Computed example of a mutant assay.
Amino acid sequence: MQRVLKVEDLGLRDYKETWDYQEALFQKILELKKANHKQIAPIKQTPNYFLFVEHPHVYTLGKSGHIENLLIPEEKLKEINATFYKINRGGDITYHGPGQIVGYPILDLENFFTDIHKYMRLLEEMIILTLGEYGLNAMRSKGETGVWLDVGTPFARKICAMGVRASRWVTMHGFALNVNTDLGYFDNMIPCGIKGKAVTSLNVELGRAEIPVEEVKEKLMKHFLHLFDATQIEKTEA
């Protein structure tokens, strides 16, 4: 099985431009799988990608989401330099912005395992292990995808949101880890459609002005490669 990973760091990139790029890679893998299945060309191994990116302020609504969870009128978004998109991942509404690490694994899961539940749990485990390196006891919250702190207490707060799309075992979209994020932007929505739960970031939890983003990315990739038994062939920068 092809467990080699091409890692691309796109830097600060417009959400729609990145979404289009994801879709192009996603369709490329699907088309290759279709050709392999029909054996209309020599069998080729399907590639696996992992995109790191940081987005300008943007709110995205998943296909099962509710627009009511965006708490400001869409016409007010320009005033806060934000955009809004309805997209084709699972989940409800979330926010992306500067200081947040967004990761988009575009994988052919048939190269790894064919289990979406396991895939989501391993993504969560990658975040949990990374935060553990900073001394944080991050965990899952039953029935709520993502990674949290102080689950089961009145102080429960979410530090990483997740939402994916999969077709024929090919994935896209992924996770958003708050590192040095302006948490004020979360006040304009009900995060992931879950009322009464707070949101936090790594720098707030550690009481530091800023956490080196590249350092966090390196830890994330180390744990991803271990959990998925994968190897990294190259890393390209924007």
Rank of each mutant, 00 (worst) to 15 (best):
residue 8 E to H: 09
residue 8 E to S: 04
residue 9 D to G: 02
residue 15 Y to Q: 02
residue 27 Q to P: 00
residue 32 L to G: 13
residue 33 K to P: 05
residue 36 N to M: 11
residue 37 H to Y: 12
residue 43 I to G: 00
residue 46 T to S: 11
residue 48 N to C: 07
residue 49 Y to W: 14
residue 61 L to T: 11
residue 66 H to M: 09
residue 66 H to Q: 14
residue 66 H to F: 13
residue 71 L to R: 14
residue 73 P to D: 14
residue 73 P to N: 11
residue 84 F to C: 08
residue 84 F to I: 14
residue 85 Y to S: 11
residue 86 K to I: 14
residue 87 I to H: 10
residue 87 I to P: 00
residue 93 I to R: 05
residue 93 I to N: 05
residue 98 P to M: 14
residue 99 G to W: 08
residue 103 G to L: 03
residue 106 I to W: 03
residue 107 L to R: 01
residue 109 L to G: 07
residue 112 F to E: 06
residue 123 L to P: 00
residue 125 E to L: 06
residue 128 I to R: 03
residue 128 I to E: 04
residue 135 G to H: 03
residue 141 S to W: 08
residue 144 E to W: 10
residue 144 E to Y: 13
residue 149 L to H: 08
residue 150 D to T: 05
residue 152 G to D: 07
residue 152 G to W: 13
residue 153 T to E: 05
residue 162 M to W: 11
residue 164 V to T: 12
residue 168 R to H: 15
residue 169 W to G: 03
residue 172 M to G: 01
residue 172 M to E: 03
residue 173 H to Q: 02
residue 175 F to W: 11
residue 175 F to Q: 03
residue 175 F to R: 00
residue 177 L to P: 04
residue 180 N to S: 06
residue 180 N to F: 02
residue 184 G to M: 09
residue 190 I to V: 12
residue 191 P to V: 15
residue 192 C to D: 07
residue 197 K to D: 08
residue 205 E to K: 06
residue 207 G to Q: 14
residue 208 R to I: 10
residue 210 E to G: 01
residue 218 E to Q: 00
residue 220 L to N: 00
residue 227 L to N: 08
residue 228 F to R: 05
residue 232 Q to V: 04
residue 232 Q to H: 02
residue 235 K to F: 02
